[in-house]
Amino acid sequence: MENELLAFLSKLDVFTGNEIDELGNLLTVKTAKKNTVIVKQGQVCCDCYFVLKGCLRQYVISDGAEKTIAFYTEEQAINFYTSAVQKKPSQSFLISLEDTVLLVGNPEINAGMFARFPKLEQLTRKMMEEYFGQTQDSFAEFMTSSPEERYLNLLTKRPELMQRVSLSHLASYLGITPASLSRIRKRIIKK
């Protein structure tokens, strides 16, 4: 568990060896077995997460059905900003699809750590800005594409998900039924 954190911090080439050791002792790392619910819809979640290892799915229940809204894998941030900062109930669930290792933070703890390690604050801000931009681009692309284009996009941008996520979860994420996803896959194979 600490190995993943230390390996990630070392890879960044931002911190000195002493800073890495200090951060390794201060940062909170949490493990979750496969199929562990990390956040429940309706729960006030005061934490944000960063995936060091594993795959997670964020989903909502709408009209009695689970609708996947995101998948998170290594080196991706999961932010429940509205819930954490505004103390509002989460609108979604977060579940581990694999055994997972997460870096856990929250606004109160992060403020003190950022004061002590300004490079950590700069790094976190840069990562969040990049993530926000990617999310906006992905949303716009999703809204303007057909289900087949969404699937091809996913194959291009996140091919690892095909091996890590069930077809029913992928179909839900793409906004289609598993049967529709099967037809799309067959059409693509024939081309």
Rank of each mutant, 00 (worst) to 15 (best):
C48V: 04
Q41C: 04
D21C: 15
C46K: 13
T73C: 11
Q41K: 07
V60R: 09
L23I: 04
R57F: 15
P89N: 00
R57P: 09
F80N: 08
Q91L: 14
L102D: 10
K33F: 01
R57T: 13
K67W: 00
C46W: 08
C48W: 00
T68G: 03
E22L: 11
C48S: 08
Y59R: 04
D47V: 10
Y72P: 00
A32R: 00
V37K: 08
A77Y: 10
K53M: 02
L23H: 06
A32Q: 07
T100D: 09
T36E: 07
F71M: 07
F50C: 00
K34R: 14
L103C: 12
K87M: 08
V60H: 06
A77V: 09
Y49H: 12
L23K: 07
T68D: 01
V51Q: 01
T100Y: 07
L97K: 03
Q76N: 09
L23M: 09
S96K: 01
D21A: 15
I95A: 14
V29C: 03
A77W: 13
T73D: 14
L102R: 03
S92Y: 11
G105N: 01
T68I: 02
I109P: 00
Y72M: 05
V85T: 12
A111V: 15
S90D: 11
I69L: 13
I69Y: 04
E22K: 12
T73R: 04
P89D: 00
S92N: 12
I95L: 14
E22W: 04
L94G: 01
Q86A: 12
C46I: 14
A32H: 09
V39Y: 03
N25Y: 11
I109G: 03
C48G: 02
A70P: 00
K67G: 15
N25C: 06
E75P: 02
D63K: 05
F93Y: 12
A32M: 06
A77R: 10
K33L: 10
F71S: 04
L26S: 12
K67A: 15
T68H: 03
I69T: 11
L56S: 08
D63N: 12
R57C: 14
S62L: 14
V39Q: 15
N35F: 15
T36V: 06
K40N: 11
P107I: 02
T82P: 00
F80P: 13
I95P: 00
N106R: 07
Q76G: 04
L52V: 05
G42K: 06
T82M: 07
D47C: 13
T100E: 10
I61D: 02
C55M: 05
P107Y: 02
E66W: 11
G24C: 12
E66R: 07
G24Y: 07
C55A: 08
I38L: 10
F71K: 03
C45L: 12
D99H: 02
Q91E: 12
V39C: 15
C48K: 05
L26T: 08
F71D: 01
Q43P: 00
D99Q: 08
Q58V: 05
C45W: 10
V39K: 13
I78K: 05
T82I: 09
Y81L: 15
K88N: 07
N25A: 10
G42E: 13
C55K: 09
V44G: 13
I78P: 01
Q91P: 14
K88T: 13
A84L: 12
L56E: 10
N106S: 04
I109T: 09
N35W: 15
G54L: 05
A32P: 14
V85Y: 14
F71Y: 10
